[in-house]
């Protein structure tokens, strides 16, 4: 009896470590910001060296100054804001729809045998058809409109997220599902109380792949379909008018946007879920 009390006492008087989630926004984020800015600064410096001293024509390798001037001009005349707004609206609309659809269908496929049997073959069939190959089709259906782009993005995102969620749910440790059943999770509540959180590492990987695929398709799609504003459209437009500095500025914005999506949205999602739970290792 006595020995138990002292053992328990020792256990409980251990110093309580600081919860990493509480420091996420203070010292840690400054260091993270530094970690991610340094490589960019190095790249920019290299660029400037090549542009100034490489002896290449400035139309191919404009110095940073010109690119930034083009960037300033774009943001000054409101084009940049409109392009970003256009591109991001398309992206988020389709990601939201595709991700919700893919997460639910993928989870059901991973858990219910009927769903899996019914959907594996069509899924594999569709996986062989790249979203971009559907452009001729959606252009016939919707004309050169937003809908032609968004439908393809939804297709690509939904398919990617479905596959990743399905495999993620299938590899959930059976003991978690047993525990879920014993403690009263069944049917729908099994999905959202056990399966989705348990498969979260794969689901987030799915979102990450879906994001990057959708982003690539979106930029190209905006070049093909003449929407009024969008980063891809701006690139195409700039090339038509031989504004090479504008092409580079546009590419810079495209790259930065992708980076920010990854850093701000996906990383936040991860640190709020799988990193906090400790189900995905964080590198020290």
């Amino acid at each position: 009896m006595k020995s138990e009390k002292t053992l328990t006492g020792q256990l409980l008087s251990n110093p309580v470590p600081v919860d990493s989630s509480t420091v996420l926004l203070s010292a840690g984020s400054l260091r993270h910001f530094g970690e991610f800015m340094v490589p960019i600064a190095v790249l920019l410096a290299l660029w400037e060296l090549v542009a100034r001293f490489g002896g290449l024509p400035p139309s191919l390798f404009p110095p940073l100054e010109d690119i930034f001037r083009a960037l300033l001009k774009m943001s000054g005349d409101g084009h940049l804001a409109a392009d970003l707004a256009g591109t991001f609206t398309r992206l988020f609309q389709s990601i939201a729809i595709g991700a919700v659809f893919g997460t639910i269908v993928g989870t059901c496929m991973g858990h219910f045998r009927m769903w899996e049997r019914a959907l594996v073959v069509p899924m594999n069939f569709l996986l062989a058809i790249p979203g971009t190959a559907l452009f001729p089709l959606t252009m016939i259906w919707f004309g050169l409109t937003e809908a032609a782009i968004i439908s393809i993005l939804i297709y690509e995102v939904a398919l990617t997220v479905t596959v990743m969620t399905w495999t993620g749910v299938k590899s959930i440790d059976n003991s978690l599902i047993r525990a879920g059943r014993v403690f009263g999770a069944n049917g729908l509540s099994m999905l959202w109380r056990v399966l989705i959180p348990a498969a979260m590492p794969s689901i987030i990987s799915g979102y990450r792949i879906a994001f990057s695929r959708a982003w690539r398709i979106l930029i190209i799609a905006e070049m093909l379909v003449s929407v009024s504003a969008g980063l891809g459209y701006r690139l195409y437009f700039a090339r038509e008018y031989f504004q090479y500095d504008m092409v580079y500025a546009g590419l810079f914005v495209v790259g930065m946007s992708g980076l920010l999506i990854e850093r701000v949205i996906l990383r936040t999602m991860e640190s709020m879920t799988v990193n906090r739970w400790g189900t995905v290792r964080e590198l020290k």
Binding site: D173, S175, L176, A179, G180, P197, A198, M200, G278, T279
Partner: peptide
Amino acid sequence: FQEFALFPW
């Protein structure tokens, strides 16, 4: 459960 089977989230 022998393997604890706690919900990690």
